[in-house]
């Protein structure tokens, strides 16, 4: 892992004993971390140890350790796929588009809720805006079909009435990506706003009072107090999403895509599903999972540095 300048804020610890005696002062902290760390070791790291089956010809009777190594055979089907490049391209583009639209939309909604003077409006919007998060994609498929279907969708009735003709929105590679990105935006916007709303609560109200005294307008307050106040959370949310950049939303694509839009709808996870899960071959999922982690890690390292340079804060 890269080094950062924050480290320099620790007092000089040239010798081991001095370092240790410095660390000893934090024993209360370490004590507090023991349970969570133990939990991580067992529940998160043991499975990672077992993930060695990605490089093995796993046999249940031989167990994880006893199964023979087979190098990169489990990765072969993925890296030899003629669709590899489009799969990665689709995955990354959907991820980025959802990030670029979803995070600002959620922030905007949180800001709106924070700034509005109407108590009723705030309550109602707040209570209803998260509900779409609970619609499963299967149900949304029905709703989207009601809007966009070629034979009986609302928009096509309008199109036909106005002489534009029928557009098969869900089955046309030109329109399908928009449906994916905007349905996700609609579904997750309210839910995504909650975390920013919580962060807004951490802003010291005294700051606004002094700003008013100095005659700052509401917009200026947003610009110079509110947004900087939640900048760190925004950075955290964005960075964590960048770390999982190769997760583009399996459930959504799996439900919404269809054969004619595979060119723009097939992502890494849907491919893995068809190749591995449907085939009861789970080592390929583990193998691709490791690959995705590696990509996520490298992106995270780069963007964490960038964030520190530009926004002054990163994940750590």
């Amino acid at each position: 892992m890269g080094r950062s300048r924050i480290e320099s804020s620790t007092p000089p610890g040239r010798t081991l004993t001095r370092r240790l005696s410095h660390a000893w002062k934090f024993r209360g902290m370490y004590g507090m971390a023991i349970l969570p760390v133990a939990f991580f070791l067992v529940i998160r790291y043991l499975p990672l140890w077992n993930a060695q089956i990605a490089f093995k010809d796993f046999s249940p009777l031989d167990g994880v350790w006893g199964s023979p190594w087979n190098g990169f055979s489990n990765f072969a089907a993925f890296f030899r796929s003629p669709y590899l490049v489009p799969l990665i391209r689709n995955t990354v583009l959907y991820s980025l588009a959802k990030l670029a639209l979803g995070v600002p939309a959620a922030i905007l909604l949180a800001l709106g809720l924070y700034e509005t003077g109407h108590r009723m409006l705030r309550r109602v919007v707040q209570t209803l805006a998260y509900l779409p998060h609970f619609l499963s994609w299967i149900i949304l498929h029905g709703i989207l079909l009601g809007l966009f279907s070629a034979s009986e969708g609302l928009f096509n009735e309008i199109n036909r009435a106005s002489g534009i003709g029928t557009i098969n929105y869900m089955g046309d590679p030109a329109t399908f990506p928009f449906i994916v990105v905007f349905s996700d935006l609609w579904k997750e916007m309210g839910w995504g706003a909650i975390v920013f709303l919580a962060a807004l609560m951490g802003i010291d109200p005294a700051l606004f009072e002094s700003a008013q005294v100095e005659g700052a307008s509401r917009l200026q307050q947003v610009r110079y107090i509110t947004l900087p106040g939640i900048l760190d959370v925004i950075v955290v949310v964005v960075l964590l999403r960048i770390g999982t950049i190769l997760d583009a939303g399996f459930h959504q694509l799996f439900v919404l895509y269809s054969v004619p839009v595979l060119d723009v709808g097939d992502i890494i996870d849907t491919w893995v599903y068809r190749q591995g899960i449907l085939n009861a071959d789970y080592s390929i999922a583990t193998a691709v999972g490791l690959f995705k982690g590696l990509i996520g890690l490298s992106f995270l390292l780069v963007f964490n540095r960038l964030a520190k340079r530009i926004a002054g804060s990163g994940l750590y």
């Binding site: 089907a77 796929s81 054969v259 004619p260 595979l262 190749q275």
Partner: peptide, 23 residues
């Protein structure tokens, strides 16, 4: 199914459907 099942199936199905759709 073949070892490259996901690719084979996609190529097979995708092409037939695109022919049928006139795409």
């Amino acid at each position: 199914p073949p070892a490259n099942k996901a690719d084979f199936e996609r190529f097979y199905t995708e092409n037939l459907v695109k022919f049928a759709l006139g795409q």
